[in-house]
Design a protein around this nucleic acid. Structure first.
Length: 210
DNA sequence: TCATTAACACGGG
DNA sequence: CCCGTGTTAATGA
């Protein structure tokens, strides 16, 4: 395991736990677009993200997909945690947004560590809380805001995670992730450009003031 | 009323 | 040429 990876872990977990992670956890790498977990697959390990960003999707009964939330460094998926404990099938799909490194923790360790390590308990609790809040924000956005507000929320979220005000994505990709059509995305983006809030290029959006 | 679908032209890479 | 983009017109919820 790299020094960089370790330093991230040391700020979150106690040394004895990290030792266990080194022996029992498995470091895995994914590239942009890789499907990390798919609908209906059994989850046997719980991932902790050490590098990169993962996007989590949910599919409705008609097969339409929508982006739920992003996961980034040191975060984990509480969905995965509860699935692991009961050996259930995944309700969501996770795709790597960029280059991603995760530590896969085998499910038999999860419960054991909960009693053994306070830092692990805290991490799990905090992780559940963060995911829940993020989910609430997504629901609020989808249920109560119109598409133009959702688009702005989407762009801001991209900006926050990439740390850059230049967003690299096609209108089509954005439309897919927001579960709408490209026509609408193009129209709304054009509107925002006319308002002087961003600039449009091919496969690129430069955010000015949102 | 506003989203979706299909269709088309434009142009940059 | 292919793909992303901008627009329009018809249709749908």
């Amino acid at each position: 395991m790299s020094v960089d990876t370790l330093s991230i872990l040391y700020s979150t977990f106690e040394p004895a736990l990290i030792k266990e992670m080194e022996t029992d956890g498995e470091l895995r790498h994914f590239s942009e677009g890789d499907v990390i977990i798919d609908y209906g697959k059994y989850i046997r390990t719980m991932p902790i993200i050490v590098e990169g960003t993962i996007k989590v999707f949910r599919k409705d009964e008609h097969g339409k997909e929508i982006l739920l939330y992003y996961l980034s460094s040191t975060e984990s998926c509480s969905m995965a945690y509860s699935c692991c404990l009961e050996a259930k099938k995944s309700e969501v799909k996770a795709i790597a947004e960029d280059e991603v490194q995760i530590i896969a923790i085998p499910n038999n360790k999860l419960d054991e560590w909960l009693c053994k390590y306070p830092s692990w308990k805290n991490y799990i609790m905090r992780s559940f809380n963060e995911r829940f809040l993020e989910l609430l924000r997504s629901i609020e956005s989808i249920a109560f805001h119109k598409l133009d507000e959702r688009l702005i929320y989407y762009l801001k979220e991209k900006q926050r995670l990439s740390g850059s005000s230049v967003i690299k994505a096609s209108h089509n990709t954005i439309a897919d992730e927001m579960a709408t059509s490209r026509v609408v995305v193009s129209r709304l983006l054009k509107q925002l450009e006319n308002e002087g809030r961003l600039l449009l290029y091919r496969n690129e959006i430069k955010l000015l003031k949102l």
